[in-house]
Design a protein around this nucleic acid. Structure first.
Length: 798
RNA sequence: GCUGGUGUGGCGGAACAGGUAGACGCCCGGGACUUAAAAUCCCGUGAGGGCAACCUCGUGCCGGUUCGAUUCCGGCCACCAGCACCA
C-alpha cells in the first residue's frame, strides 16, 4: 500500500475539527502552558512560505507539551485591520469587511491544511466589533490616565497618497506604497505616552527570558542615557537648557548649538534675522533622511546679538543654529565641546571656533579626544587633576548646589503617533466638543462602530475618509450634550495586536476584555515566538499596553510574555528575499499538493537552524518525503517484528532524550536528523513494534497526520497525539560495546571497542596492544597517558 | 560609529562544560531489482598522495594556552541584521 498523504491528511484534519481535539479548558488539574505565535495579517495573497516556519515550530512545542501532560493553550486569530485590505477594497470596489472575511476564510483553510493544533474555538478577529470594542476601551482608559493626548507634531506626508504615513511605512524616504516623495508636515495627531514607561520597559527586560538580540534591540531603541541638564544664561536674560552626558567637559564648552526649530528663536530679536530664517526654511524643507546623512559637511548660522555664558568659566560664548542638533532629542540644544566631541570638533574647524582641551591624553589639534575615560582633567578649574568619572560627580553636585542643573536621564524613545487618516481601522472613541474640548465616549457607547461608507479614498485635504461622513461626525458631547464632532482618524494597525493574547484567554466575554480568572489562569504567555521585525514595534507596544493594564489592575502580571524567541527568515531559492516583483515567491500550497503537509512541515523545520536565515531548496524537500516514505514502508512491507526483543534499546533512549531536548531548545533540525538516523538503523536491523511505537510518538509533533495513520494501522489504540511523551532512561542510552578513540601524541591512530566504564589501566593496556598503536609507539618511551572516560586514550611518547 | 550575530565539504547544515571534525539531508558516482525507465534498496562521496595497509593537510586569517583547539584567550579580516549627527 502506498503512502496516500492527501487522503490521510484530510481524514485526520476532519477528525481533529469534528472532535475539537486541541481545545484548551480554563482550569483543571494539569499545569497550564500558553504557547503563542504572532497572529497573521490575512492578506489577499494567502499564506506564504514564511508563515509555516514559526507556526510549525510552535505547533511542535504545543503538541509535545500536550503529550507531556500540560493543559496547552495554542490559539490563532487574525490581525485584520490595515492598509493592504483597504487598498484592495478601493481598487476592486469591494467593502474591506468583505475582503477581510474572504481572506480569513482562505487563511483558515490553508492553516487547517497544515495540520496545526490550534484551538479554533478561540479564534479572534481584530475587526470584529465585539473585539475592537475592547481595543477602544483600552484607549479610553489611557485617555483617562492622561496617556493619550493630541499634539501638533511633524509627520511623514505622502505627496501622492495625500495621507500621513507611519515611520515604518517610509522606506528610503519614499512612500512604500506608491514610491512618491515624503515631506514633513505639521499635523494634530493622537499620541500615546509610551515614554512614561521607558524606564520600566528597560528594567523589566531583566525579569523575562527573551533571546539576547531581542533584549539588546529594545534597549537600544529605548536608548537610555544618563547625563545632566545644564542651564546656560544668555545675554538676553533667557536660559538655554542643554542635555549632556559629558558634564565633566563643561569648561571646554566654547559655543552652543540650537536646533533650527528651537522655540526661543521665535522670541528673540536678532541682528541677522534674514540669514536665520533662510537657514530655518532650508532645514524645514529637508527630510529627516537628508538631515541625518553623515557624509555632508556641517552647516549652521551664528545668532548675532545674543550670546550665552558658560556657567563655570563665565565667558561669553557664541550661539549657532545647525541641523546637526535635533529638536526631538534632549532639549533641542547642546553645549559644544569641540575638544572632546567629533561633531563639535568638525563644526568648530569650519567656523573657526576655539577648541580647548579639558581632558589630557589625546591630540586635539588632529581630532576630538572622545574615548577619554582614562584621561585626567585639565584647564578645568575645580575639576583639574580629577579622573573623568570623579569630575562628572563633582561638577554635577556643584551644578545642583548652584541651581544650574541636575543629573538627568534621557531616552531616545518618542511617544507613539497613534492617528491614521484611514478608513479600515478602529475609530477613536473621542468627540471634540466646542465647549468641553476632547471628551471620551462613555463605556456604554462602545463599540463605536466603523460606519458603512461608499468611498474609502483618502481626501485631498489629508483627512480620513470618515471626514466626509457628516451624519456620523455630528454628534453630541457626552458631557454637556452640546454639539460636538467625532474624531475621524482611526487607530494604527498595531492597536489590535497590542492585547490580542489577553482576549484568547476568554474570547467570548462581553463584559470585560477577558475575565479575571481566565487572565490569572493563563497569563503570562509562557512562550511567544515571532519575527525580529516586530521587536521595536508590536513587541514593545504590547509590553507598554500590558504594563498600563497592569497598573490599572486589569491584568495580573507586569510582563505579558515570559519567553520570546524569534525565527530566521526564509529566502527564495536564489538566496534573495521573496517578492512578487522578483517572481521567486514560494507557495506552501504547491508543496502540500505535491508532497503533503507532513513533508512540508518536516522540511521547513529541517531546513537549518531555526533562528537563522535559510534559503529554500525545492530539491531538499524530497529528502523529507523519502524519510516519511521509509517510515511508511517499514510498516507496509511487514518489516516490524512482533514478540521480539529490541536490539535498538540504546538508540531509542538516546533518541527520546535528544528529540525532547532539541524541541525545547529550538533545534528542530537535529531532532529530525535523530529520527532519520533511527529509521536508518531500522533498515539495518528491523524494529520491534515497541521500537516503532516510540518512533511514531516522537514523530507525531512533527508529522502528525502520518503518525496518526500508522498508529491506527498498528492498532496501538487511542491517538498518537494523546500518547504520553516517552521518558528516557539515562542508564539505557549507552551501548554494550562502545568505540574509544586512541591517539598517539594527540593524533587519532586507532579505535578500540570496549564495554562502557572500563578502568583506565585496562584501556591503556588494550590501546597499547592495538596493532596500529603498537607500530606508532614502537621503540619510543611513553611519558604520559591521558584517558577520558568512555571517549579516548591519548598516549604521549618522546 | 554603536549593538547583536555569523564564518566548517559541491550545497543546507552537525559536533563546542576542549576529547574520533563533517551527524542528518541534498547533489553526484557505482551496484542490485527491471525488457527498459522511474521508484526502491545497498555501497561510495573534504582535499592531496599511495596498488594497498596507510600517510599528510584541513573548521575565515595571524598568534597563544594545552597531551589535544571548530570549541578557550589575544589581535585582525569578511559578511548579515538593527540603530545611528541621540549630545
Amino acid at each position: 500500500m502506498k503512502y496516500d498523504f492527501t487522503g490521510i491528511e484530510s481524514k485526520w484534519q476532519k477528525k481533529w475539527d469534528d472532535e475539537k481535539a486541541f481545545c484548551a479548558s480554563n482550569g483543571g488539574e494539569r499545569p497550564k502552558f500558553y504557547v503563542l505565535i504572532e497572529f497573521p495579517y490575512p492578506s489577499g495573497t494567502g499564506l506564504h512560505v514564511g508563515h509555516p516556519r514559526p507556526f510549525t515550530a510552535m505547533d511542535i512545542v504545543a503538541r509535545k507539551r500536550r503529550m507531556q501532560g500540560f493543559n496547552v493553550l495554542f490559539p490563532i486569530g487574525f490581525d485584520a485591520f490595515g492598509l493592504p485590505t483597504e487598498n484592495y477594497a478601493i481598487k476592486n470596489k469591494i467593502h474591506p469587511a468583505a475582503v477581510t472575511r474572504d481572506n480569513i476564510a482562505k487563511f483558515t483553510g490553508q492553516l487547517k491544511r497544515l495540520g496545526y493544533s490550534f484551538d479554533w474555538e478561540r479564534c479572534v478577529d481584530t475587526t470584529d466589533p465585539s473585539y475592537y470594542k475592547w481595543t477602544q476601551w483600552i484607549f479610553l482608559k489611557m485617555f483617562d490616565a492622561g496617556l493619550a493626548y493630541k499634539a501638533l507634531i511633524p509627520v511623514n506626508w505622502c505627496t501622492s497618497c495625500k495621507c500621513v504615513l507611519a515611520n515604518e511605512e517610509v522606506v528610503d524616504n519614499v512612500c512604500e506604497r506608491c514610491g512618491a516623495d515624503i515631506v514633513r508636515r505639521e499635523k494634530s495627531q493622537w499620541m500615546l505616552k509610551i515614554t512614561k514607561y521607558a524606564q520600566r520597559l528597560i528594567d523589566d527586560l531583566d525579569t523575562v527570558d527573551y533571546v539576547e538580540r531581542v533584549k539588546a534591540q529594545q534597549r537600544n531603541w529605548i536608548g537610555r542615557s544618563v547625563g545632566a541638564r545644564i542651564d546656560f544664561m544668555t545675554t538676553s536674560g533667557d536660559t538655554i537648557q542643554v542635555f549632556t552626558t559629558r558634564q565633566d567637559t563643561l569648561y571646554g564648552a566654547t559655543y552652543m548649538v540650537m536646533s533650527p526649530e528651537h522655540p526661543l528663536l521665535q522670541k528673540w530679536t536678532l541682528d541677522n534675522p534674514d540669514e536665520i530664517k533662510a537657514y530655518q526654511a532650508l532645514a524645514a524643507k529637508k527630510s529627516d533622511f537628508e538631515r541625518t546623512e553623515l557624509v555632508k559637511e556641517k552647516s549652521g548660522v551664528e545668532l548675532k546679538g545674543i550670546r550665552a555664558v558658560n556657567p563655570v568659566t563665565n565667558k561669553e560664548i557664541p550661539i549657532f543654529i545647525s541641523d546637526y542638533v535635533l529638536a526631538s532629542y534632549g532639549t533641542g540644544a547642546i553645549m559644544a565641546v569641540p575638544g572632546h566631541d567629533t561633531r563639535d570638533w568638525e563644526f568648530a574647524k569650519i567656523y573657526n571656533l576655539p577648541i580647548v582641551e579639558v581632558v589630557s591624553g589625546g591630540d586635539i589639534s588632529k581630532e576630538a579626544y572622545v574615548d577619554c575615560d582614562s584621561g585626567i582633567m585639565v584647564n578645568s578649574g575645580i575639576l583639574n587633576g580629577l579622573s573623568v568619572e570623579d569630575a562628572k560627580v563633582k561638577i554635577t553636585k556643584w551644578l545642583a548646589k548652584e541651581g544650574l542643573g541636575e543629573e538627568t536621564v534621557n531616552f531616545k524613545l518618542r511617544d507613539w503617533v497613534f492617528s491614521r487618516q484611514r478608513y479600515w481601522g478602529e475609530p477613536i472613541p473621542i468627540v471634540n466638543c466646542e465647549k468641553c474640548g476632547y471628551v471620551p465616549l462613555s463605556e456604554s457607547d462602545l463599540p463605536l462602530l466603523l460606519p458603512e461608507i461608499e468611498n474609502y479614498e483618502t481626501t485631498e485635504t489629508g483627512e480620513s475618509p470618515l471626514a466626509a461622513m457628516t451624519d456620523w461626525i455630528s454628534t453630541v458631547c457626552p458631557k454637556c450634550k452640546g454639539p460636538a464632532k467625532r474624531e475621524t482618524d482611526t487607530m494604527p494597525q498595531w492597536a489590535g495586536s497590542s492585547w490580542y493574547f489577553l482576549r484568547y484567554t476568554d474570547p467570548h466575554n462581553d463584559t470585560a476584555l477577558a475575565g479575571r480568572d481566565a487572565l490569572s489562569y493563563w497569563t503570562p504567555v509562557d512562550w511567544y515566538n515571532g519575527g525580529m521585525e516586530h521587536t521595536t514595534l508590536h513587541l514593545l507596544y504590547s509590553r507598554f499596553w500590558h504594563k498600563f493594564l497592569y497598573d490599572i489592575g486589569v491584568v495580573p502580571t507586569a510582563e505579558p510574555y515570559n519567553k520570546r524567541t524569534s525565527q530566521g527568515m526564509i529566502l527564495a531559492e536564489d538566496n534573495q528575499k521573496m517578492s512578487k516583483s522578483r517572481g521567486n515567491v514560494i507557495n506552501p500550497d504547491d508543496y502540500i499538493n505535491e508532497y503533503g503537509a507532513d513533508t512540508l512541515r518536516l522540511y521547513i523545520m529541517f531546513i537549518g537552524d531555526f533562528e537563522k536565515t535559510a534559503a529554500w531548496s525545492s530539491q531538499a524537500v524530497k529528502g523529507c518525503k523519502r524519510f516519511l516514505d521509509r517510515i511508511w514502508n517499514l510498516a507496509a512491507d511487514g518489516a516490524i517484528l512482533k514478540d521480539a526483543d529490541s536490539s535498538h534499546e540504546a538508540a531509542i533512549h538516546r533518541a527520546i532524550k535528544k528529540v525532547g531536548n532539541d524541541i525545547e531548545n529550538l533545534k528542530f533540525n537535529t531532532a529530525i536528523a535523530t529520527l532519520m538516523a533511527l529509521v536508518n538503523d531500522f533498515y539495518i536491523t528491523p524494529p520491534t513494534q515497541g521500537d516503532y511505537k516510540v518512533l511514531l510518538t516522537l514523530l507525531s509533533p512533527f508529522a502528525p497526520h502520518i503518525a496518526e495513520e500508522l498508529w491506527e494501522m498498528q492498532g496501538f489504540g487511542g491517538y498518537a497525539a494523546k500518547e504520553a511523551w516517552p521518558e528516557h532512561d539515562e542508564s539505557k542510552t549507552i551501548e554494550a560495546q562502545i568505540e574509544i578513540a586512541v591517539q598517539v601524541l594527540g593524533k587519532l591512530r586507532s579505535t578500540i571497542k570496549v564495554p562502557p566504564d572500563c578502568d583506565d589501566d585496562f584501556l591503556i593496556e588494550k590501546a597499547k596492544a592495538d596493532e596500529k598503536i603498537a607500530r606508532h609507539i614502537e621503540g619510543k618511551q611513553i611519558t604520559k597517558t591521558i584517558v577520558v572516560k568512555n571517549r579516548l586514550v591519548n598516549i604521549i611518547v618522546c
